[in-house]
Design a protein around this nucleic acid. Structure first.
Lengths: 154, 154
DNA sequence: ACGTATTAGTTCCGATTCAGAACGCAAGCC
DNA sequence: GGCTTGCGTTCTGAATCGGAACTAATACGT
């Protein structure tokens, strides 16, 4: 199966990954959440080749995750801002951040802390069920088909 | 920057992606969370080439995310099971699933629902602050360096 | 007028990775 | 013996990537 076919797999995870499952794309979004907006800044901070960065930004704009906004004329210059669809990826980034903090840090510990302004604490995000408020464990979850039809997976 | 250097970037997101930021790896893990354990089953369900699947499973085992367990002798056969480190990736998969459900579904709606056994409701996971219990929004979070040293990012 | 800087890309080429299909091997079953 | 199951490996052409140089529009300094 080629990667451009993955989008048509009836699975929300696969479809999400068809857009953000690229090596660099999630790093671009990480920087976007840290308020990076401009081509040069993305390029410097990420160390990605300009070629690939241009391509990924184009695709993210085409998907409606970033929008290209003109911020000056003469010469025309554009910056890239998260859309609502893009901002909704925050839980993905935070989940990766916390997993990396826990399992991939070297002796120095996590290099950056997120602080929750609302309560002032260092952020430790948990996955909770919005119905009952309890923490979610894999073993407490069952998967079921929402509708009849061709075999489908999550 | 080559991808094998990304691991040394002082950023938990980058380090996490150095392990799971591959096109197929997160799909392998999705199936692992759905109790898939064997090579043939992964291959059939994912549609990935056997070559690549063997490579990804090897890497996930090397990273301690899956473990290779002998389940029969003569001939020796092994299956792949999530370790604690692997199970800890559940929030990443769930975050991708929910984003895909919301933004990438076609007319049929999400193909699969997760049910929270504990409360019986269809699972809608939220990102909550484990200190104050409130839902976390990007704008309520600030990033700060945990320690002095070379320039670091989340 | 001329050279330098800024910002946002594009072009080119050799190296790496990937998809698809075939092949290997160990054992069980008929 | 020949077919099947399970788990990989090997091979080849195609696609993608990394690194560096190049283009373009405009401002700015002298």
């Amino acid at each position: 199966m080629r990667w451009d076919e993955i989008r048509d797999v009836p699975c929300s995870v696969a479809r999400a990954l068809s857009v953000v499952g690229d090596r660099w794309t999630l790093l671009v979004l990480r920087d976007a959440f840290l308020r990076t907006r401009r081509f040069e800044d993305f390029q410097r901070q990420l160390g990605v080749t300009r070629h690939l960065l241009a391509d990924r930004l184009r695709k993210l704009v085409a998907e409606g995750i970033l929008e290209r906004v003109r911020y000056q004329d003469r010469p025309a210059r554009y910056e890239y801002r998260l859309t609502d669809k893009g901002r909704d990826l925050y839980p993905v980034i935070v989940a990766l951040l916390q997993w990396g903090d826990r399992w991939m840090t070297d002796a120095d510990g996590p290099p950056l802390r997120l602080r929750h302004k609302t309560c002032g604490h260092t952020l430790a995000a948990g996955l909770t069920c919005s119905s009952c408020g309890e923490a979610i464990e894999p073993r407490d979850v069952t998967a079921e088909l929402a509708a009849a039809g061709s075999p489908q997976r999550p």
